[in-house]
Structure formats: C-alpha cells, structure tokens
Amino acid sequence: MTAPTSEPETGAVAASATASTQLPRRSGTFLWTTARRAGAALVTLWIALTIAFALGRLSGDPTATILGPMASQDQRDALRVELGLDRPLLVQYLDYLGGIITGDLGSSLQFYQPNTTLILDRLPFTLQLVGAGMLIAVLVGVPLGVLAATREGTWWDRASSALALLGQSVPVFWLGMMLVLLFAVELGLLPAGQSGSLKHLVLPAFTMSLYPMAHVARLTRAAMSEVLREPYIDGARARGLTTGAIVWHHAFKNASLPVLTIVVLQAGALLSGAVAVEYVYSWPGLGQLALQAIQFRDFPLVQAIVVFGAVVFVLLNQLVDIFHAVIDPRLR
C-alpha cells in the first residue's frame, strides 16, 4: 500500500508548481510589454521623422536663398536637379528614410559639410549647457519640493509653490535678457554671451534651469506628500527614527521614481529645445545651429537636427522605462 501524502507536503508541492508556472508567465509578460513599448517608440519616431520631412519641404524653395534674387530660372532649375528636388516627393521621402536608417543625414546647403559632422561639433556645447542647467534644477528643485512636503500648509509650502509657479510662467527668452541687463550690463559681473569659460556658462545655465527646476520641485512635493501619508512612515516614527532619517532614507527613496522620470524627460526636452537660450546668449550649440539653418532654409540640416532630437527623446523615454523596472521590482 502507498503511504498517504501529508497535507504540508501537498501544499509545498502545489506552491512549487504554482511558482514554476507563474515564472515563465511573468517573464513572457515582461518581454511582451518591452516589445510593445519598443514598437510604440518606433512608431513615434517614424511620425516625428515624417513631420520633419514635411516641414522641411514646406519651408520654401532653398535655391532662391542659395543663389540669390539675381539668379535666373535656369540656374535655379539646375540647382534643384543637383539637390534632387526635381524628383517625386515620395522618392525623396523614401531616400530620406533610407539615409536615416544607414546613418546618412545628408549635407548642409549652407556649410557644405555633412550634417552629422556639424551636429557632433555643436553637441558638446549643448550637452554642457543642458548638464549644468539640469544639475542646478535638481540641486534646488528637489530640496525645495521636500521642504514644501514636510512643512505642508506653512508659509514655506506656499513660498515654494509660488516660486515653482513663477518658474513655469516666466518666458525663458525674457528671463535671459533681464539677466544679461542686470549681471552683464549694469553690474558687469558676468559675460553677456558666447562661450569659453565657467563665467560664460553661469547665466545661460541658470536661465535653462528655471523651467525644469519648477517641474522637479512641484513633482517632488506631490510625491513626497503622498509617501509621507503611508502607514510605514508612522511606523518609522513610532520606532523613534529621526525626521531626517524618515524623510531621506525611507520617504524619498520611494518618492524618487517619478522625480527621476521627470529629470530624464526634462533633460531630453532641453537637449532638443534649447533654441531660445542659445540665441539670447549666442551659445554655439545645436539651438544656434538650428536657427541658422532655418534662416538659410537649409532644410537638410533642419531635418537632421530634428531627427537627432527625436531619436534622443525616444531613447530617453525607453531609458526611463528601464530605470523603472530596475528600481521597482513590481514592474519586472
């Protein structure tokens, strides 16, 4: 006769079988979610590239800008043939997508250089500006948001909320001009523009930091306020932990996920949209290059800059998803 199996052993076997069946299911769900997000990112990138192509063709005929108003129609037609603008629009679009896939972003009509070379030459200046701006935004915005959350309802909270609202409302170009008038013209403390030293970076970096600083402060306050109401925070207080340990070692760790998300996304937005700041301070970055390309109707260069910005923004979105899965085990 076979001995009867005990109930604990049966429960252990059942639990083991359940875990073994759930593990592949969870793994498959995670892979399917990752593939779906990657597909959505590719569709978003394709839409952005298509819009860039359409806007480049709607900007006007670049031959008039290149040859000048005194050029004849025959000269313009010859240049259109040389640039490939005489071909059907669909053929131009397919060649444009094919060049992006192979890494060929074309050549500039204004500088007579490959667009990739021009972008890589200006990229370090924009990265320097964006990095300094985001560093200021995080160093000021995070403590400001934490202070507002821990002193909710007090004048500290109202003051930080007012500063955050002001940072989101002030136009960047107006702030840049006011800072130039104050610190460069009136006080003579800092350079008015250009690049070259740390002093040249102070004003444009602070101007760049104000808008993301307001976002970081408001989101940090909201996330911290929600976490500080959790039951485990009351348990930490009951165990006699100090306020600093509760706020920074317990609450802020759980509130850091949305803050990290907004920091990465704001960095991508600044990287692809630093036109106004670079124009005000004559900063030789991608924004200044984009303005020069637009004024010259250099649509291959404009398209290349838009493509670069779109690729960076989509990759940063994917990076945020990966960070979420690494930080929060529930998402895995």
Rank of each mutant, 00 (worst) to 15 (best):
Gln75Glu: 15
Leu123Gly: 10
Asp104Cys: 02
Gly133Arg: 05
Pro212Leu: 09
Trp32Lys: 15
Leu187Asp: 03
Leu31Gly: 11
Leu123Gln: 09
Ala255His: 08
Ala17Trp: 02
Val130Phe: 01
Ile119Arg: 08
His200Tyr: 00
Ala17Glu: 15
Val216Trp: 06
Arg218Glu: 06
Thr29Met: 10
Asp74Ser: 15
Ser197Pro: 01
Ala159Gln: 02
Thr18Val: 11
Val314Gly: 08
Pro284Gly: 04
Ser197Leu: 00
Leu45Thr: 11
Met70His: 03
Leu331Asp: 07
Ile47Asn: 08
Pro329Cys: 07
Val307Gln: 13
Thr65Cys: 06
Phe323Asp: 10
Gly84Val: 09
Leu144Glu: 10
Ser27Val: 11
Gly167Leu: 10
Ala64Gln: 14
Ala159Gly: 14
Leu181Val: 12
Leu270Arg: 02
Gly84Glu: 08
Thr102Asn: 02
Ala310Ser: 10
Ala137Tyr: 06
Val312Gln: 06
Pro258Ala: 10
Ala148Pro: 01
Val302Thr: 12
Tyr96Cys: 04
Gln113Ile: 07
Gly145Lys: 07
Leu257Lys: 09
Ile66Trp: 13
Pro4Ile: 00
Asp321Glu: 14
Gln288Thr: 11
Ala325Tyr: 03
Phe173Gly: 11
Ala41Met: 14
Val43Glu: 10
Thr2Asp: 03
Ala162Ser: 15
Arg229Tyr: 00
Met178Pro: 02
Gly235Ser: 13
Arg237Phe: 04
Ala17Thr: 12
Ala245Cys: 09
Gly235His: 12
Glu230Ala: 15
Pro62Met: 02
Leu123Asp: 02
Tyr112Lys: 14
Ala64Tyr: 06
Leu45Ala: 11
Val247Ser: 04
Ala223Pro: 04
Pro191Cys: 01
Leu270Val: 07
Gln303Pro: 13
Phe308Leu: 07
Val172Glu: 15
Pro8Met: 02
Pro88Thr: 03
Thr5Cys: 01
His324Thr: 10
Leu139Pro: 10
Leu139Arg: 06
Gln194Gly: 09
Ala12Val: 09
Ala310Arg: 00
Gln22Val: 11
Leu257Asp: 12
Leu175Phe: 06
Arg57Ala: 08
Leu94Lys: 05
Ser72Asn: 12
Gly106Met: 05
Leu270Tyr: 00
Ala35Trp: 03
Leu291Gly: 13
Ile233Ser: 00
Gly193Ser: 03
Ala276Ser: 13
Ala217Phe: 06
Val314Thr: 14
Thr150Pro: 01
Trp155Cys: 07
Ala15Asp: 13
Phe173Thr: 05
Thr220Gln: 00
Gly235Lys: 08
Ser6Cys: 00
Ile119His: 04
Trp174Phe: 14
Ala217Val: 09
Leu49Glu: 07
Met208Gly: 05
Leu144Val: 10
Ser195Trp: 00
Val277Tyr: 05
Asp121Cys: 04
Ile305His: 01
Ala52Pro: 04
Ala223Glu: 07
Gln92Val: 04
Leu123Ala: 12
Gln75Asp: 13
Ala325Arg: 15
Ala132Asp: 01
Ala3Arg: 00
Val43Cys: 11
Leu89Met: 08
Leu139Gly: 12
Arg297Lys: 14
Gly193Pro: 04
Pro88Gln: 05
Gly309Cys: 09
Tyr211Ser: 05
Leu181Gly: 06
Leu257Pro: 09
Ala54Gln: 05
